[in-house]
Amino acid sequence: MSGRVIVITSGKGGVGKTTASANLGVALAGTGASVALVDMDIGLRNLDILMGLENRVVYNLVDVIEERCKLRQALVKDKRLPNLSLLPAAQTRDKSAVSADQMKELCKELSTIFEFVLVDSPAGIEQGFQNAVAGAHEAIVICTPEMSSVRDADRIIGLLEARKDEIEQYRLVVNRYRPNMVQANDMMSVEDVLEILSVELLGVVPEDEDIIVSTNKGEPVSGTDNCKSGLAFRNIARRLRGEDVPIMDFSSQNQSWINRIVNFFNPVRV
């Protein structure tokens, strides 16, 4: 098998890379695909917590690279989805413990076992980022509709463009979207961000308190029903699998009739 290696990156820190990695992992596995989640944020391990797997971590990515264990021994199986596994980051090492070539080798090996290999990149554009993109064929760029985040996303897009030979495709996910603020013209819309960055849209995830609750429970929102961010992540997963899923329109929810009329003429899409 030759699985797809997709890096999830952003430039700016704290915009939702790890949240998106966990949720897309669960959502893709939910569609029946076999998925490996790779935590490349060496020294700042987080993905295991979001997945609720922190107590099952025995070996980590650096152990595999330094041949202290076999790849299969380091992979932690998800609690609910048998076709989803996590390769945890080392917590006590730093980014220099891994080289780009080693990472390429590792991604290649993972892609012989899994249909999807999702790599959670650290913030920044230095070695940690370079290592995370090293083995990838595709990229998902995460940004929030804020100026500093869009600027950093643009920087990342420039770096991905420079790697055209390896990165065949990159698409944008706008996270923490707030339709009400966009409607009040207090924030850039998805359309604004796309126009500025000239990039293809993969999806929009609304700001949602359920994400914080789900992090505390160790159960990503994409595994639960009745939650708009969970649905947004499941839709992104389906788009990744090539399905044509329209971008949802959240603007008419929880609103009065007059706002609905206004929205009819000027919809805010999520």
């Binding site: 869009v150 600027r151 013209n185 924030m187 850039m188 604004d192 500025i196």
Partner: peptide
């Protein structure tokens, strides 16, 4: 929103 967009465009 327009201010942010204009600033963003020229910054980039």
């Amino acid at each position: 929103r327009t201010t942010a967009k204009d600033r963003m465009r020229s910054m980039l």
